[in-house]
Structures are given as structure tokens and as C-alpha cells.
Design a binder for these strands. Sequence first.
DNA 1: TTTTTAATTGACTGGTCAATCAATAAAAAT
DNA 2: ATTTTTATTGATTGACCAGTCAATTAAAAA
Lengths: 197, 197
Amino acid sequence: MPKIGMEPLRRRALIDATISAIGERGTLNVTVSEIAGRAGVSSALAHHYFGPKEELLQATMRQLLADLGRDSVASLRKATTARERISAIIAINFNAGQFREETIHAWLAFYVEAQNSLPLRRLLGVYARRLHSNLMSGLVPLMPREEAERMAEAIAALVDGLYIRRALRDGLPNPASASGLVEDYVDAKLAQQAGAR
Amino acid sequence: MPKIGMEPLRRRALIDATISAIGERGTLNVTVSEIAGRAGVSSALAHHYFGPKEELLQATMRQLLADLGRDSVASLRKATTARERISAIIAINFNAGQFREETIHAWLAFYVEAQNSLPLRRLLGVYARRLHSNLMSGLVPLMPREEAERMAEAIAALVDGLYIRRALRDGLPNPASASGLVEDYVDAKLAQQAGAR
DNA sequence: TTTTTAATTGACTGGTCAATCAATAAAAAT
DNA sequence: ATTTTTATTGATTGACCAGTCAATTAAAAA
């Protein structure tokens, strides 16, 4: 009983199913059938809309990035001072929507897969550059550019590291303590910066 | 032409081949045949010595951990003060042997695989606990225990994060700048600590 | 020298999975 | 009322791969 206009609904359902499948199994080694099953359709339909599996994965990655992007603009809009911008960026990465088992596993799996897939690597590059420029917009007003670059790199690494550690042991560190650690780092560095001036 | 006493040589060669195969392809999705080929033997021989693939992977992980452990005791032996111990631990993780494309890819791949394999998760747990206790031995003399715990977690996350970032873009951050970032963080926190006293 | 043991592989098996395709059914367009 | 388009799937194909096994060769032991 084919209704019309199913395409966008199916695409969305398949992408959601991909995230939850990867999230639950913790690896990109999920079959198209498994994903399709979760979305309530046959594997043939998944191929019908997305073609090869790789394209479904890319679409899923794009979805993840888009979600993060949406959260980012919303959160940054409320920030007025430079220091607030930094906090906003940190908060985005550890908010309830992002810092979930499911989402984290998906990110981690994509990091690994990016090693073999140029398109995925490009997508992650987009994310990395956006995070970097967001961070710089908060850091540059507070310190020399050189120092800001280093600190942006450190914050990004810290965030990635906390994600990975959360993926491994389940549950810990929790969102509050994770973002607390990063904030604490920023405070320490800013104090050091102020002292050196 | 079977010579005797091949077993330890073959085991070692197969483990090395596993690391380099995973390192080059960036994923645990390497076939036993590929690994065996690199080691100059047939896939049947790999199974003969290791049984199922999973066991070869575990042996490889154990090798990685053993290498890291050996580097650790060597490096820690030279440290006398608490601050030096911290630096020693940081240096271990970014020394030439550890912070290589190949090794990093292998670690990252194992992190992902650990999601599905209890034995691998256990092995990573061993590593995490050892790193944590090493860090604590350097931090506890310099600050309240509570604070030391938080900082050990942050340093560990920072190290993991720098690894992941190095795996993604090739080459950067380089060993010197990576360990520089971590040292810088430690200095900033210690200064903050001294100021608060 | 016969027998056992270690080393080694080619060939095979069974299972899994991505991708294709022909077929069906219903809505839309003509 | 045909024809075209959209939605959908079961069945199938072809590739790949982990793991097994019987067979071979040579060293060691009896």
C-alpha cells in the first residue's frame, strides 16, 4: 500500500536507525539489513534510496553534523562576552543531546571509518574547522593569537578525549563533570594569562 | 622445510604484522590472510598458532600494552621529584615509539573494538588503571587528593584526545607540540594551585 | 630405522552480506 | 481507462572471509 511522499520520511527513519544501530553495537559493522529492520523496511529499500551503504553512512554523518550545528548557533546566540562564548561551545558538546552513549559511539565509529573514506574525512574536517573557529572567536579577545591557537587545540583534544573515555567505560565521566573539567582548564589558563600580563 | 622452534618467531611476526596491517588500513577490518601474508606465512598457520582471529587481536593488544609498560618503567625510573614523574608519564605517551601513525591507528581501532569484546575491554581497563595510578603518584604530593583525581582524569583525556586528533589529520600535532600542550596544562593548574594556597 | 612430533599449506566449507532485479501494488497523470 | 511514476520487497547473485582438515615435509626421539 504505497502512499506518496514517503522518501523524506524513509530517509530520515533510516538515518535515525543507523545512529541507533551503531550506537548500540558500538561499531560501524552493522548490516544494511539490521538498519533497515530497525527502520521497519527491507534492506532493498535502503539501497533504493541511498544506493551503496557508504552513502547512507555519509548521510548519517551529515545528520550528526547538522544537529551539532543547530545546537551551536542556538547556544552561541545567547552568549555576549568572549568568556561566555567559550562556555557556550563547551556546553554544546556536553549537552544532553550530544553526550549520549548512542551519539558518542556513532562519532567514535565514524572517526575510525574516516581513515578509509575520503568523504567521511572531509566531513569531519568541516566539523573540526567549525569547532576551531568557534573557539577562536572566544579566545582571541582574551589572549595573544598564538596562545589562542594552542588553547583551541587543547580544548578540542580535551573534548575528544572525554568523549572517547565516556564511550569506553559506560556513563563516566558524566556531562556535568566533563564540562567542569574543560571549564576548569580554561579558568586555569586564563588566570595564568592574567598573571603573566 | 620445517625448522624447529618456529613458534615464538611466528607468533611475534604475526603480531607485528597485525599492528602494521591495522596501522596502514586504519581499521580492525583486516583479514587474517592479509596479516598472514605480511608475516610471510599462510592464513592457516595464523589459525594454527592463535586459533580464532579474536585471540590474535588480543595478543596484539597485549603486546602494545607490554611495550608501553616497558617504556613506562624505564622512563619513571629516571624521575626523582613528583613534578618530574608527571613529565615522565606524559613523555612516555608521546615518545617516538608510541606516537606513530601505525601505533595510534592500532590503539584507536582497539578502542572501538573493545565495545564488543569483553577481553579487549578488560585489557584497556588495565592500561587505564595503570596510567591513572602513575599519574596519581605524581599529582598527590602536589595537591589535595580530590583535585589530583580530577586532574588525572583530565590529563588522561587530553592524551587520548591528542592521539585521536593525530590519527585523523596525518602528522599533526607532532610529538613535541602534543606533549607541550599537556605540560602547559599541568603548569597552569599547578600555578593556580599555588595561588590558591 | 621406524615412529613420533612440529611446521606448514592448499583446498574446502559454511556463513554473511552488499547489491541487483524482476515483480507487485497503488497512486497520479494523461 | 491507460499509462506512467512511486513505493516496496523477496529472491538471488557474487564476493569475501574465518575457520577446518587432510596431506606433506623434515626434524627429533625411540
